[in-house]
Nucleic acid binder design. Sequence first.
DNA 1: TATATTTTAGTGGTCGGACCTCTGCAGCAC
DNA 2: GTGCTGCAGAGGTCCGACCACTAAAATATA
Lengths: 251, 251
Amino acid sequence: MAKSDTHMTMRVVNHIRTLIETGDLQPGDRIPPEREFARRLRISRASLRTGIGYLAAMGVMDVRHGVGTFVADGPPELGKSSLSLLGALHGFQSWQMFEARRILESELAALAAERGREQHISAMSEEIAEMYATVNDPIEYLIHDVRFHRVIAQASGNPILAALMETITSALYDERRKTAERSRDLKESADLHREIYRAIRSRNSREARAVMERHLTAAQSAQDLEISGGPPPPPENGQATKKARRKPVAV
Amino acid sequence: MAKSDTHMTMRVVNHIRTLIETGDLQPGDRIPPEREFARRLRISRASLRTGIGYLAAMGVMDVRHGVGTFVADGPPELGKSSLSLLGALHGFQSWQMFEARRILESELAALAAERGREQHISAMSEEIAEMYATVNDPIEYLIHDVRFHRVIAQASGNPILAALMETITSALYDERRKTAERSRDLKESADLHREIYRAIRSRNSREARAVMERHLTAAQSAQDLEISGGPPPPPENGQATKKARRKPVAV
DNA sequence: TATATTTTAGTGGTCGGACCTCTGCAGCAC
DNA sequence: GTGCTGCAGAGGTCCGACCACTAAAATATA
């Protein structure tokens, strides 16, 4: 994969990676204190920290000040703000985010209909109930909304697609919460979610995909109206002209 | 988003993020030397390096020993080995990788058929020609294969989906290259790619999606046969039981 | 005794400043 | 011109000290 000799960073990364692959390290496990670990690996604490920082940025490690460093637990997740950062860099458009989400979640819903288990079905049911119970509390509603979609992702049986979805939705979350307070028609939203749920429960993957797509398209429209008047869905693209500035930019 | 006060790391990240958002920093730009930058930000070089390391892990910065640190150029890309790392951690299955790729690329092909521009069409055409020209050189063939799919991703007009695809394919690349040498039937593969190309050129998104799906399904079968006898597509999943080990694991 | 407070040990976070290694290029020898 | 050498500038590594946070033990208090 990469050189394991030079570059202390990669040495650390590969070492830990190996520990994970051999099962010596599992989610939730704590690694030794930095000072001790560094001594054992015959490298400086600074270099060790560089490697750990890399893994932490990837979402593989969870560093807690004053407590310890742990292998990430919970659902797989790429770097939390990675997409947000990349978006700032490459100027991602809002409609592109929504489109990506729409495509991913539609397929996720279809897979969930095929593979979802009882536990997932009932978990969805619970979230639906909570949504109906909080139609007048947009903030709370949003929480269950997010959970519902997350359960579908789990039910799909494909943690990779689930992780990708999580990456996108987390980049979208801040924006959603801002507009959530002014949300209305949560009843309609809940109804749509219920339709999705029913499609999944009845193992109708085509229907699940279709309703999910309808739901997310509607959500996008609502969001666009909240933000600015004109939602600009017209797509385009182009290859950025290469350039190679040699001097550091002013900061 | 995150605290900008404490945590030097996030201070650096947010600072650079702001520079990018305001357009002061653009892809390809070089940031000041670490020593100078650190002095200017009133922080230690070590802290600055931590922040830069975070951004580098995210694929936002490109650090070159002895040269300088640059804002990432080229196509957007999440952390290169992030999925690979997460896979080791959560035990992603090969079929899950393929499934994710199949879904993403099928939709990408459909979008490319709707939005692809002349430049993309001709770029695809070139790669197809190269593929036919290298049917007896699997290694070289693979290069053009990858490029072809990358052009489609660009033609889709959605850089987010393109970045997600890139993340998956790069995690799959090593495995592909290993088996590439023993590949046969590259002629058939090229034919399929040509079908995809034609569908896109004729703006037939349904056809493009269908053929792409067929192509990737075939590719998966071929890969499975190369690796081990039985491809285990049966899906399942379950919620890992939470645990909280307190003591560091042996290393 | 039960509870609130303080102390303390352990862990990650920051610092600065020395030295190493790599890269690109100017300048020199051929 | 071609090729080698040396140098300057950039990131990489290291050390050792000290700061900041957390959780749990020890102590004070009701």
